[in-house]
Deep mutational scan, measured.
Amino acid sequence: EVHFESHGEEQAMRVVKMLKKRNLTVEVKVENNKWIITAK
């Protein structure tokens, strides 16, 4: 499981795309203006 924190939507979306290319399940949450990305 991979956790990634991002402060910007643009950066977060880039990471999500990259993770999805690896056929991982990606969950995105926004907490306290931080984008929290979890990949399994």
Rank of each mutant, 00 (worst) to 15 (best):
N32E: 08
A12V: 07
V30G: 01
V16Q: 02
E31M: 10
W35C: 02
E1K: 10
I37A: 00
V16F: 05
W35M: 02
K40L: 09
A12N: 01
K17F: 14
R22M: 14
H7Q: 10
V15E: 01
I37T: 01
L19F: 05
K29G: 02
V26D: 00
K34G: 03
K21H: 07
E5M: 09
L24R: 03
K20N: 05
A39S: 04
E1I: 13
Q11G: 06
E27P: 00
L24K: 03
I37W: 01
K17M: 13
V2G: 05
I36F: 08
N23W: 15
L19S: 01
E5F: 11
L19I: 01
K34L: 12
T25E: 11
V15Y: 08
N32D: 11
L19Y: 03
E27M: 11
V30F: 15
M18Q: 06
E10H: 08
G8N: 15
K21Y: 09
E1Q: 10
K20Y: 06
A12L: 09
R14W: 11
K34V: 13
H7S: 11
K21M: 11
V30E: 05
M18S: 05
E9A: 11
E10D: 09
N33G: 15
K21I: 09
F4V: 06
A12Q: 01
M18K: 05
T38V: 10
H7F: 14
K21Q: 09
V28F: 06
H7C: 15
K17T: 09
E10K: 12
E1C: 15
K34D: 02
T38A: 03
R22K: 09
K17E: 12
T25F: 13
E10F: 08
V30D: 02
K21D: 11
K29Y: 10
E1A: 11
K29W: 09
E10P: 05
I36R: 04
E9V: 10
A12P: 01
E31Q: 09
E9P: 10
E9L: 14
G8W: 14
A39M: 08
A39R: 02
E1W: 14
H3P: 03
I37R: 00
K40H: 11
V26A: 02
G8K: 12
M18G: 03
L19D: 00
K20T: 08
M13C: 14
K34Y: 07
R22D: 03
H7V: 10
G8R: 13
N33T: 04
V2E: 07
H3D: 03
V2H: 14
V15N: 02
N32A: 07
V2Q: 07
M18E: 06
M18H: 06
K21F: 11
M13Q: 06
F4A: 02
K40F: 13
L24G: 02
N32M: 05
V2D: 04
N33S: 06
I36E: 01
A39W: 14
V16C: 15
M18F: 10
E5S: 08
A12Y: 05
K17C: 15
A39E: 01
N23S: 07
H7L: 12
H7E: 13
T38Y: 06
H3Y: 14
H7I: 10
G8V: 14
K34R: 11
N23I: 05
V2F: 15
I37N: 00
V15S: 01
M13R: 10
H3G: 04
E10L: 12
T38Q: 03
F4K: 03
N33F: 09
N32Y: 06
N32L: 04
A12I: 08
S6D: 02
V30K: 10
N33W: 05
G8I: 14
S6Y: 15
V16D: 00
E5C: 15
N32V: 04
R14P: 00
L19E: 00
Q11V: 08
K34M: 11
N33M: 07
L24Q: 02
W35E: 00
V28I: 11
M13V: 04
E9F: 15
R14H: 06
E9N: 04
V2Y: 14
L19Q: 01
Q11H: 12
V26W: 03
G8E: 14
E5P: 03
F4N: 04
K29D: 03
L19V: 01
S6K: 08
K29V: 08
F4G: 03
N23K: 09
K17R: 13
K34C: 12
M18N: 05
G8Q: 13
V2L: 14
K21P: 01
R22W: 14
K40S: 11
E27H: 11
K20F: 12
E1V: 13
E5D: 04
E9Q: 11
K40V: 09
E27R: 08
V26R: 00
K21T: 08
E1P: 11
L24H: 04
T38G: 02
A39C: 14
R22N: 06
W35I: 06
T38H: 07
E10G: 06
I37M: 02
I36L: 07
N23P: 01
R14N: 07
H3K: 12
T25K: 11
M18C: 15
K29C: 13
K29T: 09
V16N: 02
I37Q: 00
E9W: 15
K20P: 00
E10W: 13
V15D: 01
A12W: 10
W35L: 05
Q11T: 09
I37Y: 00
R14I: 09
T38D: 04
K34W: 05
V15H: 03
E5N: 05
K21G: 10
E1H: 13
N23Y: 15
E27F: 12
V16M: 06
R22L: 15
N23G: 15
V2N: 05
H7K: 09
K29R: 13
E10A: 13
V30C: 11
S6N: 04
